[in-house]
């Protein structure tokens, strides 16, 4: 469904993403890991059209969407959350979600109803009239997830949404991701907490210094000597 072919991005001499290729199928949950500065967020920016790629192609359902701009890419069904959370601060939680729904919905009242249901699904119903700026950072990240889901996307990229959650909250969120995936949406999950990634991903991609150094099932990855050398070995297992 989604194909990333040999994309690269250079920031003034630094190859932030270097010749990375990958593929995603519907319903699939893929983990993207790598040390800080490995290029995970940059890859997200490239896939979703926030940065233009220097080289390579991004193809969604046989359509080339390379460098078409983030709004266009989102409309095609590729959306994301932001590592540094970007909720609409001066709007209520519900309005945040409504704006997501409105991507494919013309009628504001219908959008409102759909948004209420989504708020419920994401356990944000009680906070629906609270301004986003008054929510906790974790709730805001969840709200971003809900907003992304509200656009009815084919792929959602979650950039470290679970940082700072308790393990109970993490379990709830993993369940939510799996439920949404089973409805047909694919996920690319960027997360530092290793057991989370291991438990949820069907496949894991490892980035280091912009390059893809490994790809495989969680078992493959956890026993891959290159990965252990580059990443796991450095004691990130928390």
């Amino acid at each position: 469904m989604l194909q990333i072919n040999n994309v690269s991005k250079t920031f003034g001499g630094l190859k932030a993403v270097n010749d990375v290729s990958m593929e995603m199928r519907p319903q699939e949950i893929i983990g993207l890991i790598g040390p800080n500065g490995a290029g995970k967020t940059t890859l997200t920016n490239l896939i979703c059209g926030f940065h233009s790629v220097d080289q390579g192609h991004i193809i969604l359902n046989d359509q080339d969407i390379t460098n078409k701009g983030a709004d266009f890419t989102s409309k095609q069904g590729l959306t994301r959350t932001f590592q540094v959370e970007k909720s609409f601060k001066d709007l209520t939680a519900l309005d945040n979600i409504i704006i997501g729904v409105l991507m494919h919905e013309q009628n504001v009242n219908v959008a409102k109803e759909k948004a209420e249901a989504i708020a419920n699904k994401f356990d944000l119903y009680k906070q629906k009239t609270v301004l986003a700026r008054n929510l906790t950072i974790q709730s805001r990240k969840l709200l971003e997830f809900a907003r992304a889901y509200a656009t009815n996307p084919k792929v959602i990229i979650l950039d470290e949404v679970m940082a700072g959650l308790t393990s109970k909250e993490i379990d709830e969120q993993l369940e939510l991701i799996q439920e949404i995936a089973s409805e047909g949406t694919a996920f690319l999950v960027i997360e530092h907490i290793m057991h989370v990634i291991m438990s949820i991903s069907q496949r894991i991609i490892v980035l280091q210094e912009g390059k893809k150094i490994a790809e495989g099932t969680p078992q493959d990855i956890s026993s891959d000597p290159v990965v252990i050398e580059a990443y796991l070995g450095k004691g990130d297992e928390a």
């Binding site: 979703c48 059209g49 926030f50 701009g69 983030a70 709004d71 266009f72 989102s74 409309k75 959306t79 994301r80 932001f82 970007k86 909720s87 609409f88 601060k89 001066d90 709007l91 704006i99 997501g100 409105l102 991507m103 971003e144 907003r147 992304a148 509200a150 656009t151």
Partner: peptide, 12 residues
């Protein structure tokens, strides 16, 4: 509120 976030929900 946020131009990047607006783009992420498909707003031109």
């Amino acid at each position: 509120n946020d131009e990047d976030a607006a783009k992420s929900v498909g707003i031109n």
